[in-house]
């Protein structure tokens, strides 16, 4: 090639400038409205110091207090001369030696770090995505192959499934699953939510699988069959690996969609990331901060996901 490759970096620089400009104008617009930003309220929704109250078991007296740094050991002696040992944080201690205590009195608290609602929400979103994604892959693969089957019943059934699921909104499907199927079959809300998401995504995966298999030329299956492989073996070793390589970008897109779609199961009171965010807003009143934060957490899942897909794609491209 005689044409010299032009440097790319000025254009990337321009991209940076444009993004900074957009962020700046957003910043300026935000400063015009009367909203008090309180980013400092956010960390407590990730992790906080949980307090556990330490209570007396019986009526009695404080026999001794022994300080061990920030902790104090309290020795209680009941009227029946039974001793109870308790450890509390020193600064929360509300008693002196000789004080009378009644059964159930709070002597002080101990504190430990606990994960906040946003972390729990993120974990819930993750496991729902993983469970629904794995199920959707199985459902999609089977349905996709049924769509290509020579058996008319399998073909019909899979077509009905795909069309029903693609033609109705996911939100409605989640309601139907929870309120109707969930009631009839006595399903938990988590089960109903995961099942609805898996069936929804499975229908799209089925179409991706079908397109992928159809894109592999007929000669590949014929060559495999001519070597004595049966239909399933030819599919597994020859056709599907090639199909998978081609549909990987579409599949990755579908799973990224799935992660975002899990936000809809908040409507059946599953406390995943979006619902955790809504609950955090009711106690913090920091609406803007929380929503930005929730968006960032979804990105935290999805950006690595597309990165992995890109890497896999590059690895599979070796044989091209």
């Amino acid at each position: 090639m005689a044409k010299q490759k032009k440097a790319q970096w000025p254009w990337h620089l321009l991209t940076g400038v444009i993004l900074l400009g957009l962020a700046g104008s957003l910043w300026f617009a935000a400063s015009l409205i009367s909203y008090e930003w309180h980013w400092n309220r956010l960390p407590q929704y990730f992790a906080y110091q949980a307090e556990v109250q330490q209570r007396a078991d019986d009526y009695g007296q404080v026999a001794a207090l022994t300080a061990h740094g920030a902790l104090t050991e309290v020795t209680l002696r009941s009227s029946a001369a039974v001793e109870q040992l308790l450890t509390v944080d020193s600064d929360s201690l509300q008693l002196a030696v000789g004080d009378d205590v009644a059964e159930g009195d709070v002597l002080g608290v101990t504190r430990h770090w606990a994960a906040g609602p946003l972390v729990w929400g993120l974990l819930t979103t993750l496991w729902i995505s993983l469970a629904a994604g794995a199920l959707a892959l199985v459902i999609g693969l089977l349905t996709g192959l049924c769509r290509l089957s020579s058996n008319p019943t399998l073909r019909d059934l899979s077509t009905v499934y795909v069309e029903l699921v693609r033609g109705t909104p996911l939100l409605v499907q989640i309601f139907i699953f929870y309120f109707f199927i969930g009631t009839v079959l006595n399903l938990s809300r988590e089960f109903a939510g995961v099942a609805a998401l898996a069936l929804f995504t499975g229908a799209y995966v089925a179409e991706i699988v079908r397109a992928g298999v159809q894109s592999v030329v007929k000669g590949q299956a014929e060559a495999a069959r001519s070597l004595g492989l049966n239909g399933l073996q030819a599919m597994r070793y020859v056709v599907l690996p090639q199909a998978f390589k081609r549909v990987l970008p579409a599949l990755a897109g579908q799973f990224i969609s799935l992660v975002k779609d899990t936000s809809l199961v908040s409507v059946i009171a599953i406390t995943e990331l979006t619902k955790s965010g809504r609950e955090a807003i009711t106690t913090s009143f920091s609406t803007f901060e929380i929503w930005f934060c929730v968006a960032a957490l979804y990105l935290l899942i999805n950006l690595p996901l597309s990165q992995i897909a890109r890497r896999l794609e590059r690895r599979l491209a070796q044989s091209d």
Binding site: G219, Q220, E222, A223, A224, V238, P241, Q242, K245, L316, S319, D320
Partner: peptide, 9 residues
């Protein structure tokens, strides 16, 4: 086969 039909992957 005419077009070899080797398994490309």
């Amino acid at each position: 086969f005419q077009h070899f039909n080797l398994f490309p992957h």
